[in-house]
Simulated assay, not measured.
Amino acid sequence: MRHAEEVTFGGSGLDRAAEIRGDIGALAAAMQDARARTIPIWRGKPLVAGEGMMEAVRLPLDHPILGEAGGPPILLGREEGAAVFSHDISGWTPPDFDAEAQASFLDPSEYSHPSCPEARFAELRRIMTRLTPRDAELAATAKAVHGWHGSHRFCSRCGAESEMHQAGWTRICPACGGQHFPRTDPVVIMLITRGNRCLLGRSPGWPEGMYSCLAGFVEPGETIEAAVRREVWEEAGIRVGPVRYLASQPWAFPASLMFGCHGEATSDEITVDPAELEDAIWVTREEVAEAAAGLREGLLPARKGAIAHFMLLNWMADRLD
């Protein structure tokens, strides 16, 4: 697909500086460089500034907010020859913290730390389309790797607490020597079409009227194409013939890589598995366009910034090739 890397979180060309992750001297020099910066993360939310278009805030490594950090930083990469890190300050609790808002579908809550009042921590899913490609990639990488450290503190081989190494990109168990690396779960998300219609579904708990492309995890020993056919059959009872890959999107909610595919349905009749979906429908290209313009009652467009929205827009514009 010619426009594949235009998807949110893709195409920024970040230099990840992988060659210095295990070089203690090079890392020390990078951290001592006055140009080095860090992007703080709080409970998965990046620190951002601005209205309309936003920017991920890069702070010097001696900024007071880093006193809240619960551990060493992660090396995200390099910009203009200087290292960019990320510190996790999730141990800090804002005085006006709203746990209910944070658990909502699109968390609207934002919090400013007193040492950095000009910026705030915001939910990445809600602001992802308001960041530049570079800032979106940095924020998603920071969120994903910090999240992995939070959920994989203990060795899966022996149960002992492991330690961070390689500038945050490895955990090593001091008890058994086991090495563990950031996890990424492969997920297929598919634009299934039949003539001028596409198949959309909705999960329980989604906002009323919100539909999107079907998706599911790839199982061990399974190809992407087979996963597309299996998931569509299991969730909606639709048989799928030819399948082709379109684009991918890292999706740090919490740790997936979405493989966007186009599949051609060979059957029409929908049989929804209620354990998987609340509903599934066939929608014409014109109806998808009306929904995207906010003119289709009862049908909301897929979330902006998500690969489903990207694929549907390109399908409407006949740009899947």
Rank of each mutant, 00 (worst) to 15 (best):
R2G: 15
H3G: 09
A17M: 10
E19T: 11
I20K: 04
D23Q: 06
A29I: 03
D33A: 14
A36P: 02
L47M: 15
G50P: 08
E55M: 08
R58C: 06
L59S: 09
L61G: 02
L61T: 08
I65Y: 02
L66P: 08
R78M: 13
E80P: 00
F85K: 01
D88A: 03
I89N: 01
P95A: 10
A99N: 03
A101F: 03
S104C: 06
F105C: 02
C116R: 00
A119E: 09
I127C: 10
I127K: 02
M128H: 09
T129P: 05
R130T: 00
R130G: 01
T132P: 00
T132R: 09
E137Y: 04
A142Q: 10
H146K: 04
S151I: 01
C155G: 07
S156L: 08
E161F: 10
A167D: 07
G168V: 06
C176K: 11
G177F: 09
F181Q: 08
R183H: 13
T193P: 02
C198V: 14
L200T: 03
R202H: 04
P204C: 03
P207T: 09
E208Q: 08
E208C: 00
M210P: 07
S212N: 15
C213S: 14
E222L: 14
E225R: 00
W233Y: 14
G237P: 13
G237N: 11
R244Q: 13
Q249S: 02
W251T: 06
A255T: 05
C261N: 04
A265N: 01
P274N: 10
L277Q: 01
I281P: 07
E286D: 10
L295Y: 02
L295G: 01
H309M: 03
N314V: 00
A317H: 12
D318F: 07
L320T: 12
